[in-house]
Protein backbone atom coordinates (compact mmCIF):
# COMPACT_ATOMS: atom_id res chain seq x y z
CA UNK A 1 0.00 0.00 0.00
CA UNK A 2 1.49 3.36 -0.95
CA UNK A 3 0.05 6.39 0.75
CA UNK A 4 -0.48 9.73 -1.04
CA UNK A 5 1.42 11.22 1.85
CA UNK A 6 3.03 9.53 4.82
CA UNK A 7 4.95 10.86 7.81
CA UNK A 8 6.94 8.76 10.27
CA UNK A 9 8.27 9.93 13.61
CA UNK A 10 8.15 13.67 13.07
CA UNK A 11 9.79 15.64 15.84
CA UNK A 12 9.89 19.34 16.39
CA UNK A 13 10.71 21.27 19.53
CA UNK A 14 10.16 24.92 20.32
CA UNK A 15 12.55 25.54 23.17
CA UNK A 16 11.48 23.01 25.81
CA UNK A 17 8.06 22.41 24.27
CA UNK A 18 7.76 19.25 22.20
CA UNK A 19 5.17 20.33 19.65
CA UNK A 20 5.68 17.11 17.68
CA UNK A 21 6.92 14.13 19.62
CA UNK A 22 7.33 11.36 17.06
CA UNK A 23 4.09 12.01 15.22
CA UNK A 24 2.95 9.65 12.44
CA UNK A 25 0.48 10.44 9.72
CA UNK A 26 -0.80 8.76 6.57
CA UNK A 27 -3.47 9.30 3.96
CA UNK A 28 -4.56 7.36 0.86
CA UNK A 29 -5.37 8.94 -2.49
CA UNK A 30 -9.08 9.86 -2.63
CA UNK A 31 -9.49 9.65 1.12
CA UNK A 32 -10.68 12.27 3.62
CA UNK A 33 -8.71 12.06 6.85
CA UNK A 34 -9.70 14.26 9.76
CA UNK A 35 -6.99 15.38 12.14
CA UNK A 36 -8.37 16.14 15.57
CA UNK A 37 -6.96 16.88 18.97
CA UNK A 38 -7.25 19.31 21.82
CA UNK A 39 -5.67 22.75 21.63
CA UNK A 40 -1.89 22.37 21.71
CA UNK A 41 -1.99 18.72 20.61
CA UNK A 42 0.18 19.59 17.59
CA UNK A 43 -2.38 19.73 14.76
CA UNK A 44 -1.23 23.05 13.39
CA UNK A 45 2.43 22.18 13.78
CA UNK A 46 1.90 18.88 11.96
CA UNK A 47 0.06 20.58 9.08
CA UNK A 48 2.76 23.23 8.81
CA UNK A 49 5.44 20.53 8.73
CA UNK A 50 3.57 18.60 6.03
CA UNK A 51 2.90 21.68 3.89
CA UNK A 52 6.42 23.04 4.01
CA UNK A 53 5.79 26.04 6.27
CA UNK A 54 7.85 24.67 9.13
CA UNK A 55 11.10 22.72 9.27
CA UNK A 56 11.12 19.49 11.30
CA UNK A 57 13.94 18.43 13.62
CA UNK A 58 13.75 14.78 12.58
CA UNK A 59 11.43 12.27 10.94
CA UNK A 60 10.69 10.99 7.47
CA UNK A 61 8.21 12.00 4.80
CA UNK A 62 7.05 9.84 1.90
CA UNK A 63 4.93 10.75 -1.08
CA UNK A 64 3.62 7.79 -3.12
CA UNK A 65 6.14 5.63 -1.27
CA UNK A 66 9.13 7.78 -2.23
CA UNK A 67 11.14 9.58 0.43
CA UNK A 68 10.73 13.36 0.02
CA UNK A 69 11.78 16.59 1.73
CA UNK A 70 9.14 19.26 2.14
CA UNK A 71 11.05 22.22 3.52
CA UNK A 72 9.37 25.08 1.65
CA UNK A 73 5.81 25.81 0.48
CA UNK A 74 7.18 25.66 -3.07
CA UNK A 75 8.46 22.12 -2.46
CA UNK A 76 5.01 21.14 -1.20
CA UNK A 77 3.36 22.67 -4.27
CA UNK A 78 5.75 20.81 -6.53
CA UNK A 79 4.55 17.57 -4.94
CA UNK A 80 0.92 18.53 -5.63
CA UNK A 81 0.21 19.54 -2.02
CA UNK A 82 -1.95 22.62 -1.45
CA UNK A 83 -3.06 24.19 1.83
CA UNK A 84 -6.16 26.25 2.60
CA UNK A 85 -5.27 28.32 5.64
CA UNK A 86 -7.79 29.37 8.22
CA UNK A 87 -7.51 33.00 7.14
CA UNK A 88 -8.08 31.83 3.54
CA UNK A 89 -5.20 33.89 2.08
CA UNK A 90 -7.32 35.40 -0.66
CA UNK A 91 -6.75 38.95 -1.89
CA UNK A 92 -10.07 40.64 -1.04
CA UNK A 93 -9.92 43.27 -3.78
CA UNK A 94 -9.30 40.76 -6.57
CA UNK A 95 -12.08 38.78 -8.22
CA UNK A 96 -12.37 34.96 -8.08
CA UNK A 97 -10.54 34.48 -11.37
CA UNK A 98 -7.68 36.73 -10.33
CA UNK A 99 -7.40 34.95 -6.98
CA UNK A 100 -7.57 31.54 -8.63
CA UNK A 101 -4.59 32.34 -10.87
CA UNK A 102 -2.65 34.64 -8.53
CA UNK A 103 0.99 33.70 -8.88
CA UNK A 104 0.12 31.28 -11.71
CA UNK A 105 -1.21 33.65 -14.34
CA UNK A 106 -1.76 32.30 -17.83
CA UNK A 107 0.16 34.56 -20.19
CA UNK A 108 -0.71 35.42 -23.76
CA UNK A 109 1.30 33.56 -26.34
CA UNK A 110 4.21 35.14 -28.17
CA UNK A 111 5.59 38.64 -27.71
CA UNK A 112 2.58 40.00 -25.78
CA UNK A 113 2.97 37.27 -23.20
CA UNK A 114 6.62 38.04 -22.84
CA UNK A 115 5.73 41.70 -22.23
CA UNK A 116 3.60 40.59 -19.31
CA UNK A 117 0.14 40.50 -20.88
CA UNK A 118 -2.24 37.89 -19.46
CA UNK A 119 -4.81 35.72 -21.19
CA UNK A 120 -7.95 36.85 -19.33
CA UNK A 121 -10.41 34.84 -21.41
CA UNK A 122 -8.54 31.57 -20.86
CA UNK A 123 -8.25 32.10 -17.10
CA UNK A 124 -11.90 33.07 -16.76
CA UNK A 125 -13.12 30.09 -18.76
CA UNK A 126 -11.00 27.61 -16.81
CA UNK A 127 -12.04 29.12 -13.49
CA UNK A 128 -15.73 28.89 -14.37
CA UNK A 129 -15.27 25.30 -15.46
CA UNK A 130 -13.37 24.40 -12.27
CA UNK A 131 -16.06 25.99 -10.09
CA UNK A 132 -18.85 24.31 -12.02
CA UNK A 133 -17.13 20.91 -11.69
CA UNK A 134 -17.03 21.33 -7.92
CA UNK A 135 -20.54 22.73 -7.71
CA UNK A 136 -19.33 25.93 -6.07
CA UNK A 137 -22.08 28.53 -5.73
CA UNK A 138 -20.08 31.51 -6.96
CA UNK A 139 -21.96 33.40 -9.65
CA UNK A 140 -20.17 36.69 -10.08
CA UNK A 141 -16.69 36.10 -11.45
CA UNK A 142 -15.84 39.79 -11.76
CA UNK A 143 -16.73 41.05 -8.27
CA UNK A 144 -14.05 41.38 -5.58
CA UNK A 145 -14.07 38.34 -3.29
CA UNK A 146 -14.05 40.66 -0.26
CA UNK A 147 -17.66 41.52 -1.10
CA UNK A 148 -18.74 37.86 -1.04
CA UNK A 149 -20.08 35.79 1.83
CA UNK A 150 -17.78 33.79 4.08
CA UNK A 151 -19.03 30.57 2.51
CA UNK A 152 -18.35 31.74 -1.01
CA UNK A 153 -14.86 32.84 -0.03
CA UNK A 154 -14.22 29.45 1.55
CA UNK A 155 -15.43 27.77 -1.63
CA UNK A 156 -13.11 29.92 -3.72
CA UNK A 157 -10.16 29.04 -1.48
CA UNK A 158 -10.99 25.32 -1.61
CA UNK A 159 -11.61 25.41 -5.36
CA UNK A 160 -8.28 27.14 -5.89
CA UNK A 161 -6.47 24.51 -3.86
CA UNK A 162 -8.36 21.72 -5.65
CA UNK A 163 -7.46 23.16 -9.05
CA UNK A 164 -3.74 23.07 -8.34
CA UNK A 165 -3.40 20.12 -5.99
CA UNK A 166 -2.75 16.76 -7.62
CA UNK A 167 -2.18 14.77 -4.40
CA UNK A 168 -3.15 16.31 -1.08
CA UNK A 169 -5.17 19.29 0.18
CA UNK A 170 -4.95 20.50 3.77
CA UNK A 171 -8.02 22.33 5.05
CA UNK A 172 -7.52 24.18 8.34
CA UNK A 173 -10.88 24.69 10.09
CA UNK A 174 -12.80 25.19 6.84
CA UNK A 175 -16.21 25.49 8.49
CA UNK A 176 -15.25 27.48 11.59
CA UNK A 177 -16.97 30.77 10.68
CA UNK A 178 -19.76 29.50 8.47
CA UNK A 179 -23.51 29.25 8.75
CA UNK A 180 -25.52 26.08 8.24
CA UNK A 181 -26.11 26.32 4.47
CA UNK A 182 -22.58 27.44 3.79
CA UNK A 183 -21.10 24.64 5.87
CA UNK A 184 -23.15 22.14 3.88
CA UNK A 185 -21.77 23.56 0.61
CA UNK A 186 -18.18 23.32 1.84
CA UNK A 187 -18.63 19.74 3.08
CA UNK A 188 -20.13 18.78 -0.31
CA UNK A 189 -17.17 20.45 -1.96
CA UNK A 190 -14.77 18.35 0.12
CA UNK A 191 -16.52 15.13 -1.03
CA UNK A 192 -16.32 16.13 -4.68
CA UNK A 193 -12.61 16.92 -4.36
CA UNK A 194 -12.08 13.49 -2.77
CA UNK A 195 -14.04 11.80 -5.57
CA UNK A 196 -11.42 13.07 -7.99
CA UNK A 197 -8.81 10.97 -6.24
CA UNK A 198 -7.24 13.80 -4.26
CA UNK A 199 -6.49 13.17 -0.61
CA UNK A 200 -8.12 15.69 1.74
CA UNK A 201 -6.79 16.38 5.23
CA UNK A 202 -9.38 18.10 7.39
CA UNK A 203 -8.47 19.88 10.61
CA UNK A 204 -11.59 20.68 12.58
CA UNK A 205 -12.98 21.08 16.06
CA UNK A 206 -16.46 20.21 14.89
CA UNK A 207 -16.96 16.50 15.72
CA UNK A 208 -20.27 16.14 13.82
CA UNK A 209 -18.69 17.53 10.64
CA UNK A 210 -15.64 15.34 11.09
CA UNK A 211 -17.70 12.17 11.55
CA UNK A 212 -19.91 13.12 8.62
CA UNK A 213 -17.32 13.83 5.97
CA UNK A 214 -14.16 11.95 6.96
CA UNK A 215 -13.26 8.36 6.03
CA UNK A 216 -10.72 8.01 8.81
CA UNK A 217 -10.08 10.09 11.91
CA UNK A 218 -6.61 10.41 13.40
CA UNK A 219 -6.34 11.74 16.93
CA UNK A 220 -3.32 13.75 18.06
CA UNK A 221 -2.38 14.19 21.67
CA UNK A 222 0.78 15.75 23.12
CA UNK A 223 2.49 15.82 19.74
CA UNK A 224 1.86 12.23 18.67
CA UNK A 225 -0.86 10.18 17.05
CA UNK A 226 -2.70 8.30 19.76
CA UNK A 227 -5.52 6.69 17.78
CA UNK A 228 -6.98 6.15 14.30
CA UNK A 229 -10.66 5.40 13.79
CA UNK A 230 -12.88 4.45 10.90
CA UNK A 231 -15.34 7.34 10.84
CA UNK A 232 -18.25 4.98 10.11
CA UNK A 233 -17.65 2.93 13.24
CA UNK A 234 -16.68 5.51 15.82
CA UNK A 235 -18.62 7.75 18.15
CA UNK A 236 -18.27 11.19 19.62
CA UNK A 237 -17.53 9.66 23.06
CA UNK A 238 -14.72 7.52 21.68
CA UNK A 239 -13.13 10.50 19.92
CA UNK A 240 -13.33 12.72 22.98
CA UNK A 241 -11.88 9.90 25.05
CA UNK A 242 -8.90 9.66 22.73
CA UNK A 243 -8.40 13.41 22.65
CA UNK A 244 -8.36 13.72 26.42
CA UNK A 245 -6.09 10.73 26.96
CA UNK A 246 -8.66 8.29 28.35
CA UNK A 247 -8.06 6.00 25.34
CA UNK A 248 -4.67 5.30 23.76
CA UNK A 249 -4.66 2.81 20.88
CA UNK A 250 -1.08 3.20 19.80
CA UNK A 251 0.57 3.00 23.18
CA UNK A 252 2.74 -0.09 23.32
Amino acid sequence: MTYALEARGLRREFGHVRALDGADFDIDPGEVVALIGDNGAGKSTLVKALSGSLAIDSGELYSDGKRVTIDTPAAARALGIETVYQDLALAPHLDPVQNMYLGREVMRSGLLGRLGFMDHAEMKEKTQRAFADLGATVRDFSAPVGAMSGGQRQQIAVARAAAWASRVIFLDEPTAALGVVQTRNVLDLIRRVRDRGIAVVLISHSMPHVIEVADRIQVLRLGRRVATYDAKKTSMEELVGAMTGAINQEAA
Binding site: A91, P92, L94, L102, G103, G116, F117, M118
Partner: peptide
Protein backbone atom coordinates in the same frame (compact mmCIF):
# COMPACT_ATOMS: atom_id res chain seq x y z
CA UNK B 1 -3.56 44.52 -18.42
CA UNK B 2 -0.27 43.00 -17.30
CA UNK B 3 0.86 40.63 -14.58
CA UNK B 4 2.92 43.46 -13.09
CA UNK B 5 -0.29 45.43 -12.57
CA UNK B 6 -2.09 42.40 -11.16
CA UNK B 7 0.67 41.88 -8.58
CA UNK B 8 0.48 45.57 -7.67
CA UNK B 9 -3.16 45.12 -6.66
CA UNK B 10 -2.44 41.78 -4.98
CA UNK B 11 0.39 43.14 -2.83
CA UNK B 12 -1.79 46.09 -1.78
CA UNK B 13 -4.81 43.92 -1.14
CA UNK B 14 -3.18 41.18 0.96
CA UNK B 15 0.57 40.90 0.71
CA UNK B 16 0.65 37.74 2.84
CA UNK B 17 -1.73 36.03 0.39
CA UNK B 18 0.47 37.14 -2.48
CA UNK B 19 3.60 35.78 -0.78
CA UNK B 20 1.96 32.43 -0.06
CA UNK B 21 1.18 31.85 -3.73
CA UNK B 22 4.74 32.68 -4.67
CA UNK B 23 4.54 36.36 -5.63
Amino acid sequence: RTRFGRYTYAVGSNDEAARRVGV
